[in-house]
Design a protein around this nucleic acid. Structure first.
Lengths: 189, 189
DNA sequence: GTCTATACACCGATAGAC
DNA sequence: GTCTATCGGTGTATAGAC
């Protein structure tokens, strides 16, 4: 059934988030989903194919989520604040970003959908800044490309700090810092 | 010999950097170092103890490295620039930061030396900003704590983006962005 | 399509000779 | 202290009945 396939993907998404690629095993997926081994290998060639489908699905999901939150009719700075300061569970890590530490992900082409998500966010930020600038609404004290990458990086780094210190409060702390930096770098006219 | 012990730690540091904790195995350490299994288990109780020693050593090393680069007699902004823009191999990831994605690291107390490194850097940044502020050398447009955390997070995030895009150029891009943000947030008087 | 049984490699760890 | 041999467990994958 396509239902079985979907359940395998959902369970794999969960486990990749919790444990990353290396520490996630097909056996765990089967145990948690209650699906049998034969079913899994009927739908997917192996662990890598299963993870690939899950990562692809997660990427599409997060891109849609991003658009719903950022690509919206609000003043520029409100859009950034909405994105930067939205609630995130720092201790769990980024659903996709956490995976790039796994050697099997960066070596294979499993990283492609992760790259796509970050590219999407960066481009949306650059676009928003450039449009506002072209309209004469803002003056930029920083390069739009570099600023966009830095904002995305800040959030990813916030997850790292949260997990390192085992303190979810770092998400807000960094979000505040990033927001203050952004306000200092973008002069409204 | 204490030499064997040291070689085990050095090899483990390398492998933790390359593969993280989950994907690093004692067998790999032994193979690469040419040391026998019995030796390893003579010096260390097990994989976790070996990794713990390696992480502890790496943390001390990176703290010393940080001090040599940042805690230095230069103008404030030069010190930040020195730290933010120093050459880093983005594709390899942060020698310690990359480990917090591993569930075994964050669950156990292996994360303690990693937390210590980040705390050290954050406090040094806060200290530097506060001293300069107290001396009336700068005016701060952002909270020092939040700014410090954001700078550290940016670098960690830059590693994530570099690996996700498989593009080492993101290290410089984010460093530039962070530097511009910093300059916009810290007004020299 | 789904299940159980099984194969085979590797993992972390131990035993015991030297 | 160091080595080799080996253990029990688990990971990924396959076989083959239903």
């Amino acid at each position: 059934m396509t239902d079985t396939r979907q359940k395998l993907i959902e369970t794999t998404k969960e486990l990749l988030w919790e444990r990353g690629y290396e520490a996630m095993s097909p056996n765990l997926v089967l145990e948690r989903s209650g699906i049998g081994k034969g079913s899994m290998y009927h739908h997917f060639k192996g662990k890598k194919a299963l993870a690939s489908a899950a990562i692809q699905a997660r990427s599409e999901e997060l891109i849609a989520e991003f658009d719903a939150e950022f690509d919206i009719d609000l003043p520029l700075m409100d859009r950034f604040e909405r994105y930067l300061c939205k609630p995130r569970d720092g201790l769990k890590g980024c659903r996709l970003g956490r995976l790039v530490s796994d050697i099997s992900v960066t070596e294979d082409e499993l990283r492609q959908p992760i790259s796509a998500l970050f590219t999407h966010a960066e481009q949306a930020f650059v676009q928003a800044l450039q449009v506002a600038h072209a309209r004469g609404e803002i003056e930029l004290k920083a390069d739009a490309d570099a600023l966009a990458a830095t904002l995305v990086a800040s959030i990813q780094g916030a997850f790292i700090l949260s997990r390192a210190h085992s303190d979810p409060g770092y998400m807000d702390k960094v979000a505040q810092g990033a927001m203050q930096c952004l306000k200092a770098s973008v002069v409204l006219r």
